[in-house]
Design a protein around this nucleic acid. Structure first.
Lengths: 339, 339
DNA sequence: CTGAAAGCGCTTACAG
DNA sequence: CTGAAAGCGCTTACAG
């Protein structure tokens, strides 16, 4: 089943068959129709390896990540591959598992497979993979990753989303808004603190306490509930907490509930990530920030294809619009704006 | 940077260069070494599209799934791509999102990209995608999916793992072991019920109540905690619950805790899935069954490559060995056996 | 509007 | 042990 077969079936040359199938060049409508019908009737399917060889284009891109198919790469990969699929390009998936040797082999393999482009995804905006010297340069975009100078990157808007989360808590009348988050060596944690501070400052308030760094875990949230809700004098306790991720938020809510503290009555909570299966199952369900990772993957892919097509794409880092998802942990159905 | 360049650099013909690089044919060691050094020094990287075109082998497989990168496909994909990577084959990722048109296009794309084989993954063992008629046959293995007659499939061992879960509860002296699980139209739920019943029967016990079908959610577990732990007379209440997944288990534990029922003191719990981030954060941490999805993906991939290599692979369904992961919800550190 | 020919980068009989 | 040549399935100048 090669193009030779359709040429024979349609009684034209392979050159004409090729042009008819691809819609290139000028030709009699009758001829084009005849060739296409022939192709259809014999079940012809073009061989992309052959096409790629001559066109120097494989209609294939690679997604290389060091997040072993984790929670963040997941939606990014989904958005990316949807968008790519719609434009007829396939995506290779490769995880480097933070292993430098594997990383090198992965990039080499991508080169050998002649990918048209690469999206390099990470789970941290302050770490990044870079193309090894030995691999010839390939159009690349970075996602959820450090973005080398002059490169094109797509990251969540940690500062903006954190500000919006805090503003939501302010908008429902809370004034003593604490912030519990992950490890300080994560840039994401520092950015979220920055957004929280900015919103408080804008409202003329100061932070009731420094941001509480720790781990990205339920245990951290739980422990801090014990600490924040039992030690201080009642009127010094926070009336709201902006949590650095949904796990911390859930841990805090569970811990607070156990202490008999009402959520959202006594303390309103906003999480971060909108990890559905977590956020929806919390009691009460969690109001949280959605970073728009699906769209992040989609946008990154579309830009990559633009580069591959030779269109000029402005270098630099883009920040993805976020969205607040209102559930029950702030006790209001008011929908806040997005970036 | 083509093989022509290395041939020139090593002062041999392209035929010799090819053989030296691939280690095929006989040749003087000196020649082989000289060619390889030349290749290395000019940074030669073979073009797999060209190689594939002549060898009729792309060293590429496709993973097509209708689980949009969900929890189950994730570990399967990770295991698969690790194993494939080690053998120098790349994997295309495609999600069909339960969309028949997309499904067709996906399989067509896989054919056009000349994949050597396909692993078709699902999130339910009782549903399956099949290769459309219009696509020429490609070596295929099925994972977590219905397995057509005569095909090769790799599924978790739902019955065995459920039996082992129940046996673990029996081994710590529990006798009134309830079972709360997902929707009855899931074969996985029915298999797990079967394993639970088998273990009880083997121990000469009968089920304290019929299996409680519902949804795969925390809410279901929570609701059943209220029901099971408040309505019956105390001595008729279960002293253990085998839950159909970790979410149900967590909901049950949270619900029971709220009622003042001690876990594992009053009721011991075993979950199913070993969804780490859930199971480890439950209070107490969840003892649960691990279906071995990572190895499932790996095995499926290796078998697929065997088929591609022309080795004979026995058709039929394989059941993956499972493993019980002991945490705190049964109050014992005893490690149970595996299949 | 259509075809014959060259060529993409490789591998592999076929000779020697 | 090594090389010249054909060919994988396509596309694309180049002619006509």
């Amino acid at each position: 089943m090669t193009i030779r077969d359709v040429a024979a079936a349609a009684e034209v040359s392979v050159a004409t068959a090729s042009r008819a199938i691809n819609g290139t060049g000028r030709m009699a409508d009758e001829t084009r129709v005849r060739v296409r019908e022939a192709a259809l009737s014999i079940g012809y399917r073009p061989n992309m390896m052959a096409r790629g060889l001559v066109q120097k284009r494989s209609f294939t891109i690679g997604l290389v990540t060091n997040d072993t198919y984790g929670r963040f790469t997941l939606p990014v990969a989904a958005g990316l591959s949807q968008a790519m699929h719609d434009r007829g390009v396939s995506v290779f998936l490769a995880s480097t598992q933070d292993n430098p040797a594997l990383e090198l082999r992965t990039f080499e393999a991508m080169e050998e497979k002649c990918v048209d482009g690469l999206v390099v995804a990470n789970r941290r905006v302050d770490r990044g993979l870079t193309l090894p010297e030995t691999v010839k340069s390939i159009p690349t975009v970075y996602v959820m990753s450090a973005c080398p100078d002059g490169a094109i990157g797509f990251n969540p808007d940690d500062v903006g989303a954190a500000r919006a989360a805090t503003e939501h808590l302010l908008s429902i009348g809370r004034t003593r808004i604490a912030h519990i988050t992950g490890p300080k060596d994560f840039a994401a944690a520092r950015y979220r603190e920055e957004g929280w501070r900015a919103a408080l400052a804008e409202a003329g308030l100061s932070a009731p306490a420094p941001a509480i760094y720790g781990t990205w875990s339920e245990a951290h949230g739980w422990d801090m509930a014990q600490q924040l809700l039992t030690t201080a004098a009642p009127d010094k306790r926070p009336d709201a907490v902006f949590c650095g991720n949904d796990q911390i938020a859930r841990g805090f809510i569970d811990g607070a509930t156990r202490l008999g503290v009402g959520i959202p009555g006594d303390v309103a909570i906003v999480g971060f990530d909108n990890w559905e299966i977590f956020a929806a199952a919390t009691r009460p369900p969690l109001t949280t920030m959605d970073m728009g990772l699906l769209d992040l993957g989609r946008s990154a892919g579309l830009s990559l294809l633009d580069i591959v097509d030779g269109k000029r794409v402005e270098p630099g880092l883009r920040h993805q619009p976020y969205r607040i998802v209102i559930r029950g942990s702030c006790g209001t159905a008011k929908t806040a704006g997005t970036a």
